[in-house]
Structure formats: structure tokens, C-alpha cells
Design a protein around this nucleic acid. Structure first.
Lengths: 349, 349
DNA sequence: AACGCCTATTGTAACGTTGCAAACCCTGTG
DNA sequence: CACAGGGTTTGCAACGTTACAATAGGCGTT
């Protein structure tokens, strides 16, 4: 009817139960099933004229390959599994990162299967399940640990995966990471410029590699600038917000209170700002805050704070590229991406 | 070796290329392939003793059914597709809702395939793709519109789906929704109690059904209490935050400025609070704010505001239940869930 | 004209599962 | 002892695809 439909595959023809198969197309074209399969796969062994004729007939009949049959035959799923832990700080992370992955996978025929990092006690169970049921061609996970059991398992079984973050394993593997060490150096340098003397950072748990990178970078920068650095030991990024707030308050009450804060996440920034508000501390006067910005949402935090960007959308895109390259067998040295922070940006406008 | 491994299926036995099949198990047990298939499916036609013997052998060999083969044979995918638009306000929505769905699907063998609501212009393309490639047994989508083209398409093709939100179609279909009408009434009633006279609400676009419900409820409540109600026409929930802020400012500058705000989302609440801060308005004195709380993150907004809860995790769980029931053919009247708001809660502690 | 060679196409056999109809065995009954 | 009948088990076929080996046809070479 409409212009639009004229160019596109007819939809009604592909009704659930009468779906045309290779056989249907082959019969219509008067060739063998194999020929159709090859023609549609652009196999060079099929003559250009037949290829064209067959693909026209396939279009006319509304042929769509059956994914289940392809999977059974080839063993490939055209699916990528993303492991996420629903308990963790998603906030903008999921949407930005995921959005980037979609951009990167667009047009490749791959889809993303999101799996909850086990609800139970054994988080390897999820991964075993994916591998054993052949639920995906590759796996992605985040919050990578220095000696990550998931990475170890996948390495051992030679199952394709890409981590968000690095590990400390000797065996190299594909990853996409953000240079948190550079980030924290920049953040601290900025606080130094503002004349701050004592910096406080609530860190991710040290089992995470990015927790190590942040600690290392922070200690180095603090030493370089001769600043005092406090990393609360009782709480980390995943602690109950109320516990974090209590820790910040008690630090502030003690002698030599911090006058500069680095927030390595958006939730952390919100909590810190709430703490400042509750204590009646004026950002920009009594203290300064520099936070990681992973999405535009940070722009609406008040008081305004300075930010350094982690481009999660670009991370997602890089992840998609690395995944596809890994699946098609690229060498691991081409599959290690370290993204750099951008900023600092002053949000005031 | 360990206690743990003793009870569970051996893993090494299931190595990628030597994976045991029904045939392997059948040979080992000295029975027919069909018998094994039935035994493992707990078919009553198989004697209890054989069933037990076979399932022990299957365990020993580390047999796992091949999903692709099952799909090809049965046409079922054991996958549920969730359509998400990466451009929209996810924030906590995704994580909470998704977390709930996982809880609900836990142990059912179903997995969730997250698909970006088309990046291109034709968002039906995504759905057609799912249907035509049999990528899922059912589809879920959010931000349902009064005359939603996705719902229309799926109804026409009799493809199982559950919407988050209702439609205005005559044909009933499964949905899970939050009673936004009740929510906004409660929010306004609360502002009335606080002595407010002029309420401002930035609404979702009116094409969304929940936008209609909110408008209806707000107008009713305003009339009932004799309050003035302003719904800015130039912006909606999806507008650029800066545009929303500008609108709020110009409303405030005009005569008869609003003294009460209802925020129907977390981003909206953040923007409103930033606006109050920028204008030097004191929440609780100059104005009052009541916001929808969809996750604990709202607790850290400052100044503290009163909230009414939408339990997105429960929504996700309900969604999972409705989906499973829909797939197994339950009547549509049992598949329509309307969840109630909880609160109001005063966040101060 | 016969041969070999290259290209284009074909036929057959799986992949691992489940549905269906048929066959088997065993027990109880006439 | 034959036979019916129920409970169990079996074999075959099919789902739609792709890999592999084999075949048919055309053309240049000797």
C-alpha cells in the first residue's frame, strides 16, 4: 500500500505457522536447497545471476532464516550475555553502557541477553549455565576483580568473554576499562589547585581492580602534592548510604577534618552532597568536591560540583567492538582498550 | 573434591565439544533415546525405577539438554524480550524493574533478552524482528501509549505480550500498571494538608496512558480541593532538563507562582530541587514538594522531600508472573494487575 | 576428439530434540 | 494355554539449517 511497505518485506506472508523455509524458496526457484542457502549467504560459488534471482524470490515469499535451526547446525547463537548484579549501583550505568553496546551491535544481528549475576550464593552458576546451554557466543561482565573467579573460569574453558575492568591474571584477556588512576590524579590535582589540604575518598572495595587503581593513583597523587589522604576503612562504595554518611560525619567531627572530597560515582556524589547539606558546609568555601560524571544527571546535583567524565556510552561501543572482534578470533593484544577521562568540567553555566 | 562439587554435576565432563546428548545417555543406559527424553521430562509413561536410573546416568555424564535443538523442535525459546529505549529516563527504573523480573523468573529456565527499542525511525521493526525470527516467547514493553502501535501489532498477530501500563484498546490484553491516578491524588491531598494553594506538575507526554491517568487524577483532585493546578504545556518529562528548569523559573517569575510541586519521577525531582536551590526557595517554607520514589536513591536528595512509593521491584515480579501465566495460556482477566502507591512517607529521620 | 580442469550446482547426511504410532512385555483371566 | 489389556518402551520421522562430497556442464588444451 504505502511507499514504505512497497520496498520492505511483506509482513502478512510471514505468518507464524506458514513461514517459508529454504525448501519453499528452493521449490519456487527450481533449485536445490543448498543453492538457496549459499545464495543467501553470498557464497562466491553461486553465480551472480542465480544469487540475485533467488534472493528476489526469497524476498517475495518473505523468507526469514530460522535462528533455532541455524544455532543447532552451526553452534553459534548470535547472542552476547551481559552479567549484571541487580543489587549494585546501576543508576545511569546500565542505561548509558547498554545504550553504547546497542549502538555498537546495531546491524550485526547480535542481540544482548541480560542475566542477573546469580541471586544465589554461587555466582559461577550463571556462567556455567550460559556455557553449558550454549546460551551465548560471548560473555561480558562488570566490576571485575583482581583475581576474578568468573574470568578464571572462562579462561580455563576458553569461552569468549570481555571484562569491564582489568584483572591481575598473567594470562592476557580482552577488556575495556576506564583509566581510573588518571581520573583520580586529575581530581586530586584539581583540589590542590583550589588550595585543599586533606582529601577524603570513599573507595570501591579493594577486591575490585578499579578499587586498586583508584587507591594507587590517589596515594601517588597525594604524595606528589604533599596532601593528606583519608580513605575510610569501615565503608566502601557499596556500603549502606546511611553508614557512609555516618562515617563522613564522624570524620568531619574529628580533628583535622577533610576539606576536599573526590566522589568516584554518582550515588557517592549524592550522598556526599547530602552530607554537606546536613552539616551546613558550603561547597566552594568550606570544602570542595570533584566527582566522576557518568551521565548528564550529575548536572542537576546541587550545589554544583566540578566533574570529570567517564564516557560510558563510548565504553559500551568499545565493548561491542571488542566482543565482535573476539568472536571472530582477533588476537588478544588488539582487544584491550583503556579509555581516558575527560575534564575537569565546571558545571556552572 | 569439595563437598560442593560432590553433590553437583561434574563440570569437566561437559566440555564444549564432547557434550553428551540424549543418544549418549541412552546408549549408556541401554534404552531408547525417546525413553531418556521422557524420563528427564518426568513423563508419567516412564516407570519410576527407569526414570531414576536414567536421571542418575544423565547426571553422571553431565548431560544438559541442547536448547537450540529444543527450540527447533518445539518452537519455544524460553526467552522473554524486554524492549527498552536507551534514550529515556532509566535511572533506577531499569535496575529495580529488571531486578524484580529476575526474582520472578528465577528457577523457571526463562531468560530475559533486552532489546533496544529501535534506534532507527521504525520502532515496530524491532518487534517484527523478534516475531519473525522467533527470538522470544513473549514481549514486554514500557511507556505504553493510549493507542500503542506495538500493542496493536502484537494483538493483530496474536503474539504474547504484557505491557507496563494500560492502553485504550477495546481488546483486553495483559498488563501490569501502577495506579498513577491514586498516586497523584495522594500527592495533591498531602500538599493541601500543608496549606498549599497552587500546584505545578511537569507531566509525561499525553500520548502515554500514564500521562492521561496523571492528568485526570490531578484535575479531579485539584477541583475537589479547590486548588489551582498548572501543567506546563511547553515541556514534559522527557524534555531537556534545562528547558524544564527554564519553564519552572518563568512560572515562578510570573504572577501567582506555584507553591506546591508534584514530581512524578526521580529525574523530575532532582531538577525541581535544583530549581528551588537556584532560586533560593526553601522547601517546607516557601514551597512544598511531594515526589514519586521509585528507589532508595531519593532518600539522598536535599532538601529532604516527602515521597510516595512506586514499588518497581514488585512491578517486575508481577510482570514475570503475568508473563509466565500468559505463555501458559491463562485467561486475560487474570493477567491485569494494578499496583497501589504506598505512603506518603516523610523522609526526615 | 578426448582429456583435464574449473565453475556452478546438487544430494545426502547430519545437528539433538520431541511427537506419534507401533511394538513389546507382563500379568490376570477365561 | 491362549488371549486381552494395561503399562512401558521403542523406532521412525520431522523441525530447518549447513557441511561435505559428489556431480554436471562448459571451455581451453593437447
Amino acid at each position: 500500500m504505502s511507499q514504505k511497505n512497497a520496498g520492505t518485506t511483506m509482513d502478512g506472508a510471514a505468518d507464524a505457522h506458514t513461514r517459508p523455509t529454504l525448501r519453499t524458496v528452493a521449490a519456487e526457484a527450481g533449485v536445490a536447497v543448498t543453492t538457496v542457502s549459499r545464495a543467501l549467504a553470498d557464497d562466491p560459488r553461486i553465480a551472480e545471476t542465480t544469487r540475485k534471482r533467488i534472493s528476489e524470490i526469497a524476498d517475495k515469499l518473505g523468507y526469514v532464516p530460522n535462528r533455532a535451526a541455524q544455532r543447532l547446525r552451526t553452534g553459534r547463537t548470535k547472542v552476547i550475555s551481559l552479567l549484571l548484579n541487580p543489587r549494585h549501583e546501576f543508576l545511569s550505568f546500565t542505561s548509558e553502557f547498554l545504550g553504547g553496546m546497542y549502538e555498537g551491535l546495531n546491524g550485526t544481528g547480535y542481540s544482548i541477553n541480560i542475566t542477573a549475576d546469580s541471586l544465589g550464593d554461587d555466582r559461577l552458576e550463571t556462567i556455567r549455565n550460559i556455557r553449558r546451554h550454549s546460551l551465548a557466543d560471548a560473555i561480558v561482565f562488570t566490576r571485575t576483580e583482581c583475581f576474578d573467579d568468573r574470568a578464571r573460569y572462562l579462561l580455563e574453558h576458553d569461552f569468549p568473554f570481555v571484562t569491564h575492568g582489568r584483572t591481575d591474571f598473567m594470562t592476557p584477556h580482552p577488556f575495556v576499562d576506564f583509566d581510573n588512576e588518571a581520573f583520580v590524579r586529575m581530581a586530586i590535582a584539581r583540589l590542590v589547585e583550589k588550595g585543599r589540604k586533606h582529601i577524603c575518598i570513599v573507595m570501591p572495595n579493594e577486591k575490585y581492580t578499579f578499587g586498586q587503581h583508584l587507591r594507587f593513583g590517589a596515594r601517588q597523587a597525594a604524595t606528589d602534592h604533599g596532601m593528606k589522604l583519608t580513605i575510610p576503612a569501615e565503608v566502601d562504595l557499596d556500603s549502606e548510604p546511611d553508614d557512609i554518611a555516618a562515617t563522613l560525619r564522624s570524620l568531619h567531627a574529628g580533628p583535622d577534618a577533610p576539606d576536599g572530597y573526590v566522589c568516584v560515582g554518582e550515588v557517592s556524589a549524592l550522598i556526599t552532597l547530602a552530607f554537606l547539606n546536613d552539616m551546613g558546609l558550603a561547597e566552594g568555601q568550606d570544602v570542595d568536591v570533584v566527582a566522576k560524571r557518568a551521565s548528564p544527571i550529575s548536572n542537576h546535583f546541587r550545589p554544583r560540583i566540578e566533574t570529570i567524565d567517564e564516557d560510558l556510552r563510548a565504553t559500551g561501543r568499545a565493548m561491542a567492538k571488542v566482543l565482535l572482534d573476539r568472536i571472530s578470533g582477533a588476537p588478544v593484544e588488539d582487544l584491550q582498550v583503556l579509555l581516558q577521562p575527560e575534564g575537569p568540567f565546571s558545571i556552572s553555566r
